[in-house]
Design a protein around this nucleic acid. Structure first.
Length: 909
RNA sequence: GGGCAAUUAGCUCAGCUGGUUAGAGCGUUCGAUUCACAUUCGAAAGGUCACUGGUUCGAAUCCAGUAUUGCCCACCA
């Protein structure tokens, strides 16, 4: 026996326990080669900032899976890591430097110095993140930790790039891209966010037509009017040319037709600005029109703008409108035009479409050998999900995934920032050009172009080629280009390492649905391409078998938690400090179903803290009452003596079965809730109560406790491990085996019920004896009716409820006559309460209501039982059940009527 | 504009393949408590399962429509 604290203080246990786990080496997969490995690649948190609730949820869910599989004897591998988060990180550091007084970090510091600054910053926050992952109790294999900028991962990235380049899937081309003048980089389509803005919409006379625009400042170079071929208004204008008076004088314009034009929009006629609009660019491509640049990369107007050149676009608009008005070309202004402006979701810079030479992945070229055919990236990505090689949970995301792929355009992978994987491509140049180039610390690809450096040859190479003078493409790759390789680059690819051969494909990818496209889709792209090109069979070329998408955590009002409203923000680390990791984990798991958002509030966490404490105290009880907590019964079936023992063992056994089923189906919330209920209601509130005094059976009590701890361990690893060590176990709980379901352990219900009733009556007798109540006398004791009512009607589980009576207290008054009084009074000395303590009228009212209810139910039921269709069509079991129910209700009706009669008598006497 | 989801107790949510009388936690009310735990125990009250139709012997569950809310995608000349 051992004395431990009355309340579990998480802070006093968690760090030491984690340290012990980590040092034990148990986080690394064990060597049993016969069992199928279970592998998760942890979605790498950005190596900036700190852990938020999304990370916490991800860690809790993955840790639950990993711990359970480990306990089930699978080699379980969970690879942790961090992401360099290219744009996000560089913008954070640049901002920090600007706050410190360095106004233009890129030009002031130059490439190497700025990178060094970022490296220092990242190193520090990487440590923070690592420790916070540990705080969550994540049992990941730190010996295999990876970082997306590690040397070997960089090699993987280069290999990926080089192979795609050789296959013609990566190309260098002039395309319209999303340019962020603030960060001075391109941004991927899906990294854009749209903000609605009210603005003015202007109508200008442009030769024979009126055109509408919200952006007059882009219109200087417009020479082409586009109309729909079927638009009758402009029928006479097709393919004609004429001079028009425009912002800076006369322009030679012509009219073309295109079906993409929306006749109902504006005037149905538009002029196009191919260099600064995606749609216009596509039209220009189709009709092979020229695409003059109007706005430079800082957002200033170029020479074409004449008197406005050099002016920033934000300033130019009103001046241009003013000029047009003077010229009499402004026809109309809509004041309240709502339109969306695109901003970079990192850094929130307003995006300006620009044409630039960029690197792209061609998603339509059929270059992959897949299932006997040549398929494009798009087709392979669709195939693996359609043929269920990869299963997305919940299913409805399939549709979203397919839709996204249908609309997928070539992926722009180059970024004009420095933090990240530099593009492994070299340009052969003259020595003079290289000399000129080296003087520019703010190097990036658009500068390279504007300096007119002549590129003699383009070559893929990881290191500088030795033949001639070369400069490296100064740009870097999109972050997602490297994270796309995450499941296998972390296992050593492109080498065929032992880890790679054994652990890939990974089992599950668990992440928030918000990065389905950013990441999940790109991982499928990268792994199918890379691995298939090495000749691996298709089923080994997927990055994972299942994708589990968890919902986002919202505040109590269902709003996104945002830093701008700190009062709604819940910081997982604060909560861990206050309530312990276990409570935080449970609060993130219970009620969290795949793909659905969940609201979190502090009271919920406090509730689970209470549960954690409950487990602790149940264990205290065991420690105080069980002589040897190390022992475990050889044959627990034999050790079970009382019916209560048998019942709790049966329930435990059934619990294991249903928890196993839930875990298999990724229903973690259900599993956790079921174990929670069993622990609290069945084990603590009932079985432990019954175990007080003569019914104590240390063997069963301990056996059930230990199995509860096993079942709970994946969910609440710290408190269970702490208790485990208090029980005197030498091994750690993390290494224990998961409870097994056995068909042998289910005792029969019927006999258990009768014996329990007997036990209960005995217990009530003894309590009464203790209280000095004489058996033969009318006693002032009653048992609250609810329980009896419940237990006799409890359809699911009468025994549990019956058995709970043992924990009842005898009270001196009560509002109800227990129904069971009639049923069980025969031969048992329980009597009606004393009249003066009993509100007969109130009780009568209650009983009458019950009577009505029973009658109504019976009526409904009777109708159904007389319905021939029901008897014919419903399954026999259902019919039988309802017949039985009807009989029961009949009995109940009789009892209630009798009770009312007795009450009448009582009143009279 | 296209799509997806949600709507169940005062609040936050479960409810899987249609099947008896729709559940939990918190909150509220009443009561208990030296005996593992006030981070406790027992109980009560509280629901036309958003609405309208349909399918079915039977619908919270399936179908159609409506309403409200949220999200995603596209577009914005």
């Amino acid at each position: 026996m051992q004395e431990i604290e009355k309340a579990y203080e998480a802070k006093n246990y968690e760090p030491a326990i984690y340290k012990k786990w980590e040092e034990s080496g148990l986080f690394s997969p064990s060597g049993t080669a016969d069992r199928e490995p279970f592998v998760i690649a942890m979605p790498p948190p950005n190596a900036t900032g700190t852990l938020h609730l999304g990370h916490a949820t991800m860690l809790a869910l993955e840790d639950i899976m990993i711990r359970q599989k480990r306990m089930q004897g699978h080699p379980a591998l969970w690879i942790p890591g961090t992401d360099h988060a290219a744009i996000a990180t560089q913008s954070v550091v640049e901002k920090k430097l600007m706050d410190e007084g360095i106004q233009h970090p890129r030009t002031d510091l130059g490439r190497e110095k700025l990178l060094e600054e970022i490296r220092i910053f990242v190193e520090k926050s990487k440590d923070t993140i690592r420790n916070q992952i540990r705080k969550m109790g994540a049992s990941c294999d730190w010996t295999r930790e990876k970082y997306t900028l590690d040397g070997d991962l960089n090699h993987a990235v280069n290999t990926f790039f080089g192979r795609m380049y050789a296959d013609g899937l990566i190309y260098h081309g002039d395309r319209i891209v999303n340019w962020d003048p603030k960060m001075q980089t391109t941004v991927a389509d899906d990294e854009l966010e749209y903000k609605e803005e009210k603005t003015k919409f202007y109508y200008f006379q442009y030769g024979p037509v009126v055109i509408g625009t919200a952006r007059p400042e882009t219109k200087f170079g417009d020479k082409v009017i586009v109309v729909h071929p079927d638009d009758k208004r402009y029928k006479d204008l097709h393919n004609r040319e004429f001079d028009v008076e425009w912002i800076n004088g006369k322009i030679r314009a012509r009219v073309i037709t295109d079906k993409t034009i929306d006749m109902a929009m504006g005037t149905g006629a538009m002029t196009i600005t191919p260099a600064h609009s995606h749609v216009d660019f596509e039209i220009a491509e189709k009709h092979q029109l020229e695409r003059p640049q109007i706005i430079d990369f800082n957002g200033n107007l170029l020479e074409t703008a004449g008197e406005f050149s050099g002016m920033h676009i934000s300033e130019a608009r009103s001046k241009i409108v003013e000029k047009m008005k003077k010229k009499g070309l402004l026809m109309k202004v809509d004041e309240n035009y709502a339109h969306n402006i695109a901003v970079n979701y990192r850094g929130k810079g307003v995006v300006e479409p620009q044409i630039m030479k960029q690197w792209f992945i061609d998603v339509n070229k059929r270059a992959i050998d897949w299932k006997g055919k040549k398929m494009s990236i798009k087709e392979v990505m669709q195939d693996v999900v359609r043929t269920k090689m990869i299963k997305i949970i919940p299913k409805r995301f399939d549709k979203i995934y397919f839709h996204w792929i249908d609309n997928l355009r070539d992926w722009c992978i180059s970024r004009q920032i420095w933090w990240g994987h530099q593009i492994p491509v070299w340009f052969k140049v003259s020595p003079e050009d290289r000399q000129r180039w080296s003087k520019h610390p703010e190097s990036s690809s658009y500068l390279l172009r504007s300096m007119n450096i002549k590129i003699q040859e383009v070559r893929f190479a990881e290191t500088e080629p030795s033949d001639g003078v070369w400069i490296r493409d100064p740009d870097t790759l999109d972050t997602w280009f490297s994270s796309a390789l995450w499941t296998f680059s972390t296992l050593g690819w492109p080498d065929k390492t032992e880890d790679f051969m054994r652990f890939h494909p990974t089992s599950v990818l668990e992440t928030g649905y918000d990065i389905l496209f950013f990441w999940v889709a790109r991982m499928i792209l990268a792994s199918t391409y890379c691995l298939r090109s090495e000749g691996l069979p298709e089923e080994q070329c997927i990055p994972f078998r299942d994708v589990y998408l968890h919902g986002l955590i919202r505040d109590v009002h269902g709003q996104k938690m945002s830093k701008s409203r700190p009062e709604t923000c819940i910081d997982p680390l604060d909560m861990i400090e206050k309530y312990g990791t276990d409570a935080v984990r449970l609060s993130l798991i219970v009620g969290n179903t795949p793909g659905n958002d969940m609201r979190l509030y502090e009271e919920k966490i406090a509730g689970y803290r209470n549960f954690v404490n409950k487990i602790w105290n149940a264990s205290r009880f065991a420690l105080m009452n069980v002589p040897d907590t190390k022992a475990s019964p050889k044959n627990v079936t034999k050790a079970a003596k009382s019916r209560a023992d048998k019942w709790i063992l049966t329930k435990l056994n059934l619990l294991v079965k249903s928890v196993n089923a839930d875990m298999k189906k990724y229903r973690f919330s259900d599993a956790a809730m079921k174990i929670y209920d069993f622990t609290w209601a069945d084990y603590c509130d009932w079985y432990l109560e019954i175990s007080k005094g003569e019914h104590l059976n240390p063997e069963v009590l301990l056996y059930v406790l230990k199995n509860i701890l096993r079942l709970l361990h994946p969910f609440v690893p710290f408190v269970t491990e702490a208790i485990w060590s208090h029980l005197g176990e030498k091994s750690m709980l993390i290494a224990e085996s998961w409870p097994a379901y056995t068909s042998k352990l289910n005792f029969e219900k019927e006999t258990a019920e009768m014996e329990l009733v007997h036990d209960i009556i005995t217990a009530i007798r003894s309590i009464r004896a203790e209280k000095g109540v004489e058996p033969a006398k009318k006693i002032n004791a009653t048992i609250y009716g609810g329980i009896w009512t419940d237990l006799l009607q409890d359809k699911k589980d009468p025994i549990t409820r019956l058995a709970r009576l043992n924990s009842l207290t005898i009270q001196t008054e009560g509002p109800r006559i227990p129904k069971a009084l009639w049923k069980f009074t025969g031969g048992v000395d329980i009597y009606l309460p004393a009249e003066d303590l009993f509100d007969v009228e109130k009780e009568k009212k209650h009983l009458s209501r019950k009577l009505e209810e029973t009658r109504a139910k019976m009526n409904g039921l009777q109708k159904r039982l007389e319905n021939k269709a029901f008897l014919d069509k419903a399954p026999a079991a259902v019919v039988e059940k309802e017949q039985k129910l009807f009989a029961e209700l009949e009995e109940e009706l009789k009892n209630t009527t009798q009770k009312i009669n007795e009450l009448e008598n009582l009143k009279g006497s």
